[in-house]
């Protein structure tokens, strides 16, 4: 398997997210069927899969928002099955989650959205420190002008970027992106892809990126994993995965390039 050279050199590939044989069902609907995934520090893993295949469920399990029915999930050394509420809260501050719907608090301005986590978790910070942090993340996502706007006044791409900025303010070690480019035009998608790569370089994050956009997968992923029927069909570099003769993978590839030329 081809690996990113920086990862091989740095500190012997420390695995910081490990999912082993995880099952999850909602009532009679089996969503995950014994899925396994390891992510090493500094790597961007792209999870591909069609709508409803359980991609969001997978990262919600990693973030502790849902509990697995069966199987082991270990994130930054914490066992998610036995973790106490208090430790889970601490752990979550080290994980940034960019939601599929962006999930900006729509009763608050952009500024209040961004500072919410800081104000609540770091009461020792002064007003000036908070303003500085807000300004920094806004500059990172190039939206300094939107600070006093309400989320309803932002465009789709701006909303995504503010969503990402809101998670960056706590300087997370892990970023989980749920369909960061879904519903955006190709030009805006490319900007978001660049932003994700910039976040990786600047904040030294490890990321899981969920998408069904192959351009996004190709530009941001060190490794690609294809989710099908609640399991990973294949994992590897983009080329390795899509050189496969498996029709299920081929269909996905053809679909993307025929309908989004």
């Amino acid at each position: 398997m081809q690996k990113n050279p920086d990862i091989q050199n740095s500190q012997a590939k420390e695995t910081i997210i490990s999912v082993k044989n995880v099952y999850k069902a909602f009532g009679t609907l089996k969503v995950l069927n014994g899925i396994s995934l390891d992510v090493v520090r500094g790597e961007n893993v792209v999870v591909l899969g069609k709508s409803g295949s359980g991609k969001s469920v997978l990262i919600k399990i990693i973030a502790g928002l849902l509990k697995a029915d069966k199987g082991d999930v270990n994130v930054l050394g914490c066992d998610m099955n036995t973790i106490s509420n208090k430790d889970l809260q601490k752990l979550r501050l080290r994980i940034g989650f960019s939601f599929q719907s962006s999930a900006l608090y729509d009763s608050m301005t952009v500024r209040e959205n961004l500072e919410f986590a800081l104000v609540r978790n770091k009461p020792q910070l002064s007003r000036a420190d908070i303003d500085k942090a807000v300004k920094k993340v806004l500059d990172d996502v190039q939206l300094a002008g939107s600070i006093e706007q309400m989320p309803s006044e932002l465009s789709g791409g701006q909303t995504k970027r503010i969503g990402i900025a809101r998670t960056l303010i706590l300087e997370p070690e892990i970023m989980l992106y749920d369909e960061p480019t879904a519903g955006l035009d190709p030009v805006t998608s490319i900007e978001i892809n660049k932003l994700m790569n910039k976040v990786k370089d600047e904040y030294k994050t490890t990321s899981i990126i969920i998408t069904h956009d192959l351009t996004c997968a190709k530009t941001t992923g060190d490794r690609v994993a294809m989710l099908y029927d609640g399991k990973f069909l294949r994992q590897g570099s983009f080329e390795e995965v899509f050189q496969s003769d498996d029709v299920r993978i081929k269909n996905f590839y053809d679909y993307n390039f025929i309908t989004n030329p």
Partner: peptide
Amino acid sequence: VSEQIDAMEMTAT
């Protein structure tokens, strides 16, 4: 439904 409650949970609130 717009995941704001999940988002709040992710900020340890």
